[in-house]
Design a binder for these strands. Structure first.
Length: 729
DNA sequence: CGAAATTGGGTTTTT
DNA sequence: CCCAATTTCG
């Protein structure tokens, strides 16, 4: 028992099960942590406790999370408890930990430590090339389908040979061929895709006893967050590392398993006690985040799933307000309603940073964004088109990649003719073919005498490669990343080409590149011993969730998937319709349970205020498609008395056995009609119309119509708020 | 050989 | 609507 006062302090303020998990010593530990039950607190205190009691040394701690953001948050919170000792611990994502192991030992598997990490776009491009090389019809077998099959195989630790054994159709036969070639091409390029990071690490640990001994001895204490989202490779990786000491503590919630499509296997957590019969099991069921009403709603929804670990969240913060459910005419009315609500809340003194809006698919954000921009509401959006996926950023990154990884043909193909240098498809294929046939790196092939290359292309390639060679010398001289990037953008003519365009778009691209330079400067400052290869590997592993800012002035928009692990005082979930959420694909595949868990995740993000909206009609593909919708089955799984919706709006009559108040009915019909009070604009507000100039709002009418008196000619006009080019001033 | 124009195809979720 | 791939034109 702890005698030390510092140790007592670590346990203070923890509830009994939390304390139980923190003080558990050697041996397997399963922490079933319901949403908002303080699991990060438990993990950080457990680490601190192990250190303080002298059971563990900092360098023996390996703490795994799913996002870098979660990792840095954990690191910061541990640091508050134990200080500098944190630096010796590995607190990072699965992928980052694997990349780090591989940098040290990849040579054993025939890679250099400068191996490139391919994101899924790179991966798809290479798969496409393999399909072409094998003369496969990409109309029949799309690269996307191949990619998901290959990724799936890798997550199950199936090699191309393993896969070939199981082939049962022509499709799978094709996949086997592509998979086989793809793997060889990847290796020849000295590159790994995301899945490879895990797979190759497992290979390393399985094939080299001394490597395995080294790591399993080093990491005597292993902790894993979000264990319900681990897949088979990750499971195997953990097995290999914990085999000797069995000090594995996992935290998770089977009700929040939402990554099945990515190979996550919920059985990993469900069967933990079979894997470790002596496992100590702790359940955290007290929720410190939400009101009882929100929890009851979430519990009710998730109870429709079978075969879960029983758990019942409760709180002592009180009942709170009912869940608000709103029917809107279409997605425009929905956006208008949410935007107006945000404004109303802000007027009441709520900070925008306290508000989040969730949706099922990224495409749903567009209409909402339009409306928020129009209303002048600041927002940040997580996901969608990501910074590192922008063409100019990928180009710059691929320049750096080719400088450190001369084998990377994908990087070469991307940059050789960007900016235009007169090196087309044909010339590039010549270079790649030459490299392949001579067994040399792409770089060496590009500076070699290539037979059959046109004179113009030859000249151009020579010029390009001499610039690259000059840059490479500076890389080898240990130039800082930022300096190299800047020189590269100048000397390759990339910047010049963009400047010559003189378009607003090009201007934006230049600004993005400046942003990238800032990122490299920051990297240089934080990593005096760093190098390009490490920088590239680091940015390759960034996730969307890592870009969330704590900005007072911004409402946060994101998919439900990205919302996991976060909390907000006020939450809106839009698009609560069957087909959107649950998604039609999931309905077809009979995969409703995972969608329901996603709903559970979404609902439990809200601390005090939760609003769910659905639209009677929803357009798709820019308005050409889409029709009447059916409200989400998940809405109907929430007991009516937890919501403020007193009758079924779609029926148009009060529900049997329940008396609807007049006010409720009036309010309901107003919403159905297009909600008069939900307008983005308000009477008396100054607005600007792109054609008619400045004016003031003099009236609001049902159907989203605003009446505006314009200053220019004094005329008063009725405008459709959704379609008129009208903005708040 | 490269750039512009056209057409056709597709939307789940992502480390 | 937005992209990528193909066709067409210079």
């Amino acid at each position: 028992m702890p005698a030390d006062a510092a140790i007592d302090a670590l346990l203070e303020g923890l509830n009994p099960p939390q304390r139980d998990a923190v003080v558990h010593g050697e041996g397997p530990l399963l922490i079933l942590a319901g949403a908002g039950s303080g699991k990060t607190r438990v993990l950080t205190h457990r680490i601190a406790y192990l250190l303080r009691t002298g059971q563990a040394k900092p360098s023996e701690i390996l703490a795994i999370t799913f996002t870098n953001k979660a990792a840095s948050e954990m690191r910061e919170r541990v640091e508050l408890l134990v200080g500098r000792a944190t630096r010796a611990m590995w607190v990072m994502t699965f992928h980052a930990a694997c990349a780090r192991m591989l940098r040290a030992d990849a040579h054993r598997l025939g890679y250099t430590r400068q191996f490139t990490i391919y994101d899924s776009a790179d991966q798809r491009r290479l798969i496409k090339k393999c399909l072409d090389d094998l003369d496969v019809d990409v109309k029949r077998f799309t690269p996307r389908a191949m990619q998901s099959q290959i990724s799936d195989a890798k997550n199950k630790l199936r090699s191309p040979e393993d896969y070939r054994q199981l082939v049962g159709s022509f499709f799978e036969q094709t996949v086997a061929d592509v998979y086989d070639l793809y793997e060889r091409e990847l290796h020849r390029s000295n590159a790994m895709d995301f899945d490879d990071l895990l797979v190759r690490s497992v290979n390393l640990l399985e094939m080299f006893q001394e490597v395995r001994d080294r790591y399993s001895a080093a990491f005597r204490w292993i902790m894993v967050d979000e264990y319900q989202d681990t897949n088979h490779v990750q499971y195997r990786w953990l097995q290999l590392l914990t085999g000797d000491h069995r000090n594995l503590a996992v935290v998770g919630d089977d009700a929040q398993s939402i990554y099945g499509f990515r190979g996550a296997d919920i059985k990993n957590i469900l069967n933990f006690e079979d894997d470790y019969p002596d496992a100590h099991v702790v359940k955290l069921e007290q929720n410190y985040r939400s009101t009882q009403t929100i929890l009851d709603a979430a519990n009710a929804v998730i109870s429709n799933n079978r075969g879960q670990m029983t758990k019942h969240l409760w709180t002592d913060v009180g009942e709170g307000d009912p869940v608000r459910v709103r029917e809107m005419a279409d997605e425009h009315a929905e956006s208008r309603f949410v935007t107006a609500e945000v404004n109303r809340l802000v007027d009441e003194g709520v900070s925008r940073a306290e508000i989040a809006i969730f949706y099922r698919t990224n495409a749903q954000s567009r209409v909402l964004e339009d409306m928020l921009v129009r209303a002048g509401v600041g927002y940040q959006i997580i996901g969608g088109t990501k910074f590192y996926e922008r063409a100019e950023i990928k180009d710059a990154v691929n320049y750096l990649t080719f400088l450190v990884n001369p084998q990377d043909g994908t990087a070469f193909t991307r940059i050789a003719n960007s900016p235009r240098r007169g090196l087309g498809q044909t010339s590039m294929s010549r270079v790649l073919a030459h490299a392949a046939s001579m067994g040399m790196t792409v770089w060496d092939a590009a500076i070699d005498d290539i037979p059959g290359l046109a004179t113009a292309a030859r000249k151009s390639l020579e010029r390009f490669m001499s610039t690259m060679t000059r840059l490479k010398e500076r890389v080898e001289g240990g130039a800082p990343v930022a300096q190299l990037l800047q020189e590269l953008l100048e000397e390759t003519g990339y910047k010049e080409a963009l400047e010559a365009e003189r378009t607003i778009e090009a201007q934006g691209r230049l600004e993005n590149l400046e942003e990238l330079v800032r990122v490299t400067q920051e990297y240089d400052a934080n990593n005096p011993e760093g190098n390009i290869g490490e920088f590239l590997q680091q940015i390759a592993l960034l996730a969307d969730a890592d870009t969330i800012r704590d900005d007072e002035g911004l409402v946060t928009l994101m998919t439900l998937h990205n919302a996991k692990g976060l909390e907000f005082p006020i939450v809106f979930i839009i698009g609560m319709e069957d087909g959107t959420f649950p998604h039609s694909r999931s309905i077809e595949e009979g995969n409703i349970d995972e969608e329901r868990r996603l709903a559970y995740v979404g609902l439990t993000r809200a601390m005090r205020d939760l609003t769910l909206t659905y639209a009677r009609r929803r357009g798709a593909f820019g308005g050409s498609m889409g029709g009447p919708t059916i409200r989400s089955r998940f809405l109907d799984e929430i007991p009516r008395d937890l919501t403020d919706q007193r009758q079924r709006l779609s029926a148009g009559f009060p529900a049997p056995g329940r008396v609807a108040s007049w006010a409720g009915a009036a309010q309901a019909s107003a919403e159905v009609a297009g909600d008069t009070d939900g307008s983005v604009f308000r009477i008396g507000e100054d607005v600007v119309h792109s054609k008619l100039g400045e004016g003031v709002v003099t009236g609001l009418e049902p159907g989203g119509i605003v009446v505006v008196r314009f200053a220019g000619d004094g005329s008063e006009r009725k405008l459709m708020a959704d379609y008129a080019p009208l903005k708040r001033r």
